[in-house]
Design a protein around this nucleic acid. Sequence first.
DNA 1: TTGAAAGCGCTAACAC
DNA 2: GTGTTAGCGCTTTCAA
Lengths: 347, 347
Amino acid sequence: MPSGERRTTLADVAAEAGVSVALASIVMRGAPGAGAATRQRVLDVAGRLGYRPDSRARLLRSGRSHLLGVVFDVRHPFHVDLLTGLYAAADTAGYQLTLSAVTPRRDDRTALAGLLQDRCEALVLFGPRTPVAELAGISARLPVVTLMRGVRHRGLDVVRTDDRRGSQLAVDHLVALGHRRIAHVDGGRSHGSAERRQGYRDAMRRHGLEASARVVPGGSGEDDGARAARLLLDEPPTAVTVFNDLCATGLLDVVRRHGLRVPDDLSVVGYDDTAFSRLAHIDLTTVAQDIDTMAAQAITRAVARIEGTPVAHREVLLPPRLVVRGTTATAGSSPGRRAGPPDPPRR
Amino acid sequence: MPSGERRTTLADVAAEAGVSVALASIVMRGAPGAGAATRQRVLDVAGRLGYRPDSRARLLRSGRSHLLGVVFDVRHPFHVDLLTGLYAAADTAGYQLTLSAVTPRRDDRTALAGLLQDRCEALVLFGPRTPVAELAGISARLPVVTLMRGVRHRGLDVVRTDDRRGSQLAVDHLVALGHRRIAHVDGGRSHGSAERRQGYRDAMRRHGLEASARVVPGGSGEDDGARAARLLLDEPPTAVTVFNDLCATGLLDVVRRHGLRVPDDLSVVGYDDTAFSRLAHIDLTTVAQDIDTMAAQAITRAVARIEGTPVAHREVLLPPRLVVRGTTATAGSSPGRRAGPPDPPRR
DNA sequence: TTGAAAGCGCTAACAC
DNA sequence: GTGTTAGCGCTTTCAA
């Protein structure tokens, strides 16, 4: 019956070990100032009693919480992937993470409010939809680091991938394969959409291909990709860069049903290196964001702000990386599957 | 500069409003026992000062935390999907969730330890790999609800899908389509593997098909599916049920490359209804678990244990549901894509 | 309806 | 080395 006895407190341990609470506290924290024998005895008793320090009481007293609040969206696989690196980085920096999720039924504001009550020392927000004014208001009380969203405000730190550069990498890759008629499927109102489109435009211009540039309305979903494919089909290009991977799979499906072979007739580049892109079945060439560095930078920033370390720039722009898989090939290439190795190692 | 002033406390609000802290506390909690005018005044001051109650201090004093600890694994999309329903259910029950993630670099034990310090009133564990003995030990101190793992222990609550029944649904579906030579790709050491295999065996026997039953070693990854496909290829059945969706995609990829058409030459049923299975490109017939009910049941259980409400059974077994998509068709069917509606209504 | 006082479990000064 | 004292921000008796 769990509700029966009170749980073991530091006082219980101290009493059992025959020392004062303060001394027991010193031992439990691993702080200097306790005899070796005593230390061992207290530790033994604590273990035997199944003692677990109460982090709340501990933090309440010590003022600091060493807690970093994280808001992520369960719908975005990329967010979830980021958590791995974030935990590792926080651990290294000596901080704990407290997670609050955004779900289809739980918005940004709710997720944020929960963290604010938990007395986090800083907030790490994954692609927040919260208005900048609101974020700014919060950042007046505690440091806020924004990931994957280019908010421009002097109180907010931003860590994001250079999406413009990412699109350029995609176009450069296709041009190197001999493509000239390269289209771009837009992301609509999604974050990063404008940057990715601009990167495409820049690259086309740089290659002297502005004349054959073509931007088709798309979006972030599979449906959007399918719709874009139909628009493209009247006068198909030889290659296309797509806003993101999910949209790209929608496009792939439609063009294949219309008899186009990928990559023989059409090369396709996605964006984000979403988990499913790696499936042998999809095997999508895509632009990857450097997840681990993003995570590390976010934590570094947050900690620097908390501890008052000077930080040069408010915004960290990370270089993207092209992951070449099976949906891109040389322009006008003959049928046949590429012979290369499946995937470069990750992580 | 966020580090400047101390944050507003209840004492500040009380002082500013000219009342005692105790009274201010009553107002902030919405507890009865304060005059309407006073109530309004305190609320106004709190709003003006941007006061946020400190949950830690509050919980420390009141003893109860109304906090439910959740351990999930970032690698499992299914876990992430569950969070949505879990937040909703917890909210309804008047509890907060505190999340702790398992990652490739952060194990079950670490995730659990973090929550234990946070003084959760109960734990909800998603497919925990922790040894039963350890879980049992924890459950002596606070209620533990396990999801998606059939631990048998009198102190642990279990909420899971009837995987045996799930495999049977898959086989029944295939038999109804006229298949008789149906194989099963095993999940190896993964959780649920034995149940799913047993369900397959039961169903084959029930249909008088034991003679043509065939279990091929597989696993939970795409590679495992590919390997299984090669084993199957020497004497291919007309249909196959696969341990999970990821394994199924690996199998699909290989059999297609060997010239087999799906579903014309081979029907394939996956398991889990993982997000990518819905992609038009993959369009996998699969067995779905009832995510929302699982979430609701988990919370209901946890809360019942906390509040001492009697609960009939330790284990809740939820019925699975078959989702028919494009990888299954009648045995020996001629080429052509199925014409039916995309997804049938539940059950 | 309101306030004073005690104390949740712990840490941080300081004394011994 | 070790114990004493005070108090983090809040809720909770209990008395006024």
